[in-house]
């Protein structure tokens, strides 16, 4: 999948004026590439990620998802499909289904359903619509890959920050998405856990997925194909 944002912006009313969290921006995410987005707090990084991920509608512009033919049946590489999907022309039901089918999202901060175990949390996105018969095996494989296999029956409150992030990445990968979005996946982690998380994200990109990482961590540049800098809602290539 190639994800293209065309002239997207996002503004909020602030008093009698409009505040632009995101100024008019173009960006493209392509399979096999890891894009890192950096900038100060409040610079608009998460707003851009949310818009690209179909979580927050832009004030202007559009986000187009161009499928590869192979991508429609689950593989990553393939010929380009003729028509692109404008995400925000979809209704809520269609957009929700699109997110479930094509996106993996690692939200910022604590991101677990408290009543579910680690295994159940990871499997959850795979059970919202039809359930893949191999889902438990896929979840097990992902847990092993993330190094949290022995925590499958633990509950979120029992996890450390690093374990929680790895669980979030495993859950984002359970539907074998075309695009992976990760918002501050290494914040509050120690150096070892931070490197583990970025290495995993790099591996995912190397498998052909498009990966967008929003992070403050400067070391993320070492894993990236492209690094963007966000400043007061304006995006530029670093």
């Amino acid at each position: 999948m190639i994800l293209t944002a065309e002239k997207i912006s996002r503004s909020f009313p602030r008093g009698s004026r409009e505040f632009y969290a995101l100024q008019e921006t173009d960006i493209t995410l392509a399979g096999g590439r890891m894009t890192v987005l950096q900038g100060r707090s409040g610079s608009g990084k998460t707003t851009l990620l949310n818009i690209l991920a179909g979580l927050q509608s832009p004030s202007s512009g559009r986000v187009l998802a161009q499928m590869t033919r192979g991508a429609e049946d689950g593989s990553v590489q393939g010929e380009m499909a003729p028509a692109a999907t404008d995400l925000y022309s979809l209704d809520d039901k269609e957009l929700s289904r699109f997110r479930n089918d094509h996106y993996g999202i690692v939200p910022q901060g604590q991101s677990a359903v408290a009543a579910l175990s680690v295994l159940e949390n990871i499997m959850l996105p795979g059970t919202v619509y039809s359930q893949d018969v191999n889902l438990p095996e896929k979840a097990q494989a992902l847990m092993e890959r993330m190094g949290i296999a022995d925590l499958k029956n633990a509950f979120p409150k029992e996890l450390s920050g690093g374990e929680m992030r790895r669980m979030s990445i495993a859950r984002a990968m359970i539907r074998d998405p075309q695009v992976l979005f990760a918002d501050e996946p290494a914040s509050d982690l120690d150096d070892e856990n931070r490197d583990t998380v970025f290495s995993i994200l790099r591996e995912i990109a190397d498998e052909g997925k498009a990966v967008l990482v929003v992070t403050h961590e400067r070391c993320a540049r070492n894993y990236a194909d492209e690094v963007y800098q966000m400043d007061a809602g304006a995006l530029r290539l670093a």
Partner: peptide, 18 residues
């Protein structure tokens, strides 16, 4: 208390109706 959990479910692709 569970607003974040509900937002997470929406992130995973749960529609408003579901």
């Amino acid at each position: 208390e569970r607003r974040r959990e509900f937002a997470l479910l929406r992130v995973f692709g749960v529609s408003q109706g579901s």
